[in-house]
Design a binder for these strands. Structure first.
Lengths: 126, 126
DNA sequence: TCGTTAAATTGCAATAATACTATAAATATA
DNA sequence: TATATTTATAGTATTATTGCAATTTAACGA
């Protein structure tokens, strides 16, 4: 009976973990970089960032209609980018203006630059 | 009756789309870059790539044990990196050797470099 | 105050991703 | 041939992501 209980416990413990990224076994840098990359790794969010960058001034929600996505969907993507710290928004009357967060952008450039540059492209053994 | 059928059709059509990224409304570049980023945007895969890069020679499955993940999980991550074209593998006896695919790495550097550099960090309006 | 406009949130449905165990496949060695 | 070793795959469970309609919230203007 005790063994049965123990086995059940193990099963529950195992299935609690399933489907969840084990971030605790990786370094803070690895987790941080992957979080930033994940925020950018979507065509809609890349498109949004490109729009924000191209229009020198902040973009004020003209995104809806320009991209072929519903307002709710774009709002969600913006939220994700904001949560990752990649963009920041200011309320401007009825609308909200978004622009790049320079600090996070710089961090991304540094972290990713370092990572990409660490491969020198010398060993082509396979 | 006809209206009912039509509504059902619309519902089916809509729910076919749900949960699926609408890649057709984005440019090939946006889709390609996001696919590459998605492949890298996981701490385990970042760790795997770092290991491959650090050990100048190709890595032959020493990854299992070094990372705190099960063999099957690592194999799956390697598969995803291979599918994205970021790494390539050669069968070496019993084991398999992996190394960076220089072409894809260069592509990633170019695409991502261009994207990141497009922001000059001048306009801080919000 | 009431309507308008813009953005965020909620709720829902479906697919994708993550991780594991167990098993299969392939190659080397005794 | 039999066994050991290494990697891949199948199956399963769970969480995450994506997208939309509908609603709510917030601010402006008549």
């Amino acid at each position: 009976m005790i063994i049965l209980h123990f086995q059940l416990y193990i099963v529950i413990l195992r299935y609690k973990i399933m489907g969840l990224t084990k971030s605790e076994i990786f370094t803070d840098e690895q987790n941080q970089l992957s979080a930033l990359l994940k925020a950018i790794a979507h065509p809609a969010r890349i498109a949004i960032l490109q729009r924000i960058i191209i229009s020198n001034t902040c973009i004020c929600g003209d995104l809806v209609g320009e991209l072929g996505l519903a307002q709710a969907t774009i709002s969600q993507h913006l939220k994700e980018l904001k949560l990752a710290g990649i963009i920041q928004g200011t309320i401007e009357g009825v609308s909200v203006c978004y622009c790049i967060n320079p600090k996070t952008w710089k961090l991304l450039e540094e972290q990713l630059g370092g990572f990409l540059a660490s491969y020198k492209g010398e060993t082509t053994c396979c």
